[in-house]
Amino acid sequence: MAIGAGVAVAAALLGIASYTATKPDDSSGATVTEEAAGDRPATSTEAEGQAGAYPELEKLARRDAKDPLAQGDADAPVVMVEYADFKCGYCGKFARDTEPGLVEKYVEKGTLRIEWRNFPIFGADSERAARGAWAAGRQGRFWRFHEAAYADGSKEKGFGGERLKELAEEAGVKDVGRFVKDAGSDEARAAVKRDQEEAYGLGATSTPSFLVNGRPISGAQPDQVFDQAIEAAAKAAEGAKKSVGKSADGSR
Rank of each mutant, 00 (worst) to 15 (best):
N118W: 05
Y54N: 08
E170N: 03
A135V: 10
D195Y: 04
A61M: 11
K193L: 13
A2T: 13
V192R: 09
E46Y: 00
T33E: 03
A124V: 12
I121D: 01
V176T: 15
A236R: 15
G38D: 11
G160P: 01
V107M: 10
A95Q: 06
R138W: 06
T43H: 00
A21M: 08
A8H: 14
G101L: 05
K242Q: 10
V32Q: 13
G101E: 04
R252T: 14
Y200I: 07
E238N: 01
I217H: 03
A2H: 07
L13F: 06
R131K: 15
A237H: 05
R138M: 15
A248M: 08
V32Y: 02
R40Y: 13
R189G: 15
F226C: 02
D67Y: 13
S126W: 05
W134Y: 14
S209M: 04
T43R: 00
S44M: 08
A47P: 00
S218F: 13
G6S: 12
A248R: 10
E187Q: 12
D182N: 02
V78E: 02
R215N: 08
D67N: 15
V78C: 11
Y19E: 15
M1D: 01
P208C: 02
F142W: 12
L14V: 11
R194N: 10
A84V: 01
L102K: 07
M1Q: 00
Q224L: 06
D227E: 14
A204G: 11
P222S: 08
R117N: 11
R63C: 02
D75M: 03
Y54A: 06
E35P: 09
I3E: 07
A61R: 00
D182H: 06
K93W: 04
A199E: 03
D97I: 12
Q221E: 13
A168V: 09
A70D: 13
S209G: 12
V79M: 00
A129T: 05
K87M: 12
P55C: 06
A248Y: 04
A136Y: 01
T45F: 05
G6C: 12
P222H: 10
K235Q: 15
A220V: 11
R113D: 03
P55Q: 04
A171I: 02
A148Q: 01
P77G: 10
S18I: 09
A42W: 05
S27L: 12
R144E: 14
K87L: 11
Q228I: 04
A51K: 03
V107A: 06
G158W: 03
Q221D: 03
M80T: 09
V212Q: 12
G49F: 00
T20C: 12
G29T: 09
D186P: 08
D85K: 11
A17T: 01
E35C: 11
T33C: 09
A95K: 01
K105S: 07
G4Y: 09
E170Q: 15
Y54D: 10
D223M: 10
M1C: 00
D67Q: 12
G239D: 13
A171T: 07
S247A: 12
I114V: 15
D223N: 13
